[in-house]
Lab assay of single mutants.
Amino acid sequence: MTEYKLVVVGAGGVGKSALTIQLIQNHFVDEYDPTIEDSYRKQVVIDGETCLLDILDTAGQEEYSAMRDQYMRTGEGFLCVFAINNTKSFEDIHHYREQIKRVKDSEDVPMVLVGNKCDLPSRTVDTKQAQDLARSYGIPFIETSAKTRQGVDDAFYTLVREIRKHKEKMSKDGKKKKKKSKTKCVIM
């Protein structure tokens, strides 16, 4: 069974824990209790493949930012979460993405942009803004509501699919490099 290491990042209060708990335990946590770091595991079937999701729910508070490099190193894919009623959390996505790329030393890291709290009427981040940002990053965008469960499975499952595509691409690139290195030079 394939294991996928997913990391949920975003500013404090955007609903990272609520999304994760909704996926794992099928219930909505409405009281806000700032996370330092929590880890969850769940076995699911995605596109006919049974897999184990190892999900790291991270601290959004700035005082825990020193811990970010460590979990970013171990993560295979990242859910970059903002709240649709919090423009600052949307603007912060850029910083999370840049930090992930720096730590992973790669421009090509599996990510999904997630606009959470889409059940709320007080939207300050337009869907088109988020779609445009995701398009500019070359990553999928999904709106979710941890409260109603809308888009929750889709967000995590899409990230797994992005990781699969990335692994497939990397193995193809690896095979191309191996083929090239088999060419021999004969000096007579």
Rank of each mutant, 00 (worst) to 15 (best):
E3N: 03
E3L: 04
Y4K: 05
V9G: 02
A11V: 11
A11N: 04
G13I: 11
V14Y: 01
G15N: 00
S17L: 00
S17K: 01
A18I: 03
L19K: 06
I21C: 14
Q22K: 09
L23P: 13
Q25Y: 02
H27G: 13
E31A: 08
E31I: 10
Y32S: 11
Y32P: 09
P34W: 03
P34R: 07
P34I: 02
T35H: 07
I36A: 09
I36N: 13
I36P: 13
D38K: 03
D38R: 07
R41E: 10
V44C: 08
E49R: 06
E49L: 01
L52E: 13
L53W: 06
L56T: 14
L56I: 08
L56Y: 13
D57Q: 04
G60M: 06
E62S: 09
S65E: 14
S65D: 12
A66N: 06
A66H: 07
Y71C: 06
Y71S: 11
R73N: 08
G75V: 15
E76P: 01
C80L: 14
F82V: 09
A83N: 15
N86C: 02
T87E: 15
F90E: 10
E91V: 07
D92T: 14
H94K: 15
Y96A: 03
Y96T: 04
E98W: 01
R102T: 05
K104L: 12
K104H: 08
S106G: 12
E107L: 12
E107W: 12
D108F: 07
L113C: 06
L113H: 00
L113P: 00
V114R: 00
V114C: 05
G115W: 04
G115V: 10
G115T: 02
N116G: 07
D119T: 01
D119V: 01
L120G: 11
P121S: 13
S122A: 10
T124M: 11
D126L: 07
D126C: 09
Q129V: 13
Q131R: 13
D132G: 07
L133A: 10
L133C: 08
L133W: 10
A134P: 02
Y137G: 03
G138E: 03
G138L: 05
I139C: 08
E143R: 12
T144Q: 14
S145C: 11
K147E: 15
T148N: 14
R149W: 04
Q150R: 11
V152W: 10
A155L: 07
Y157K: 14
V160A: 05
V160M: 04
E162V: 04
E162Q: 11
K167W: 02
K167C: 03
E168H: 08
K169Y: 02
M170N: 04
K172C: 08
K172I: 14
G174Y: 01
K176A: 11
S181G: 13
S181H: 08
K182E: 15
V186I: 02
I187C: 14
M188C: 13
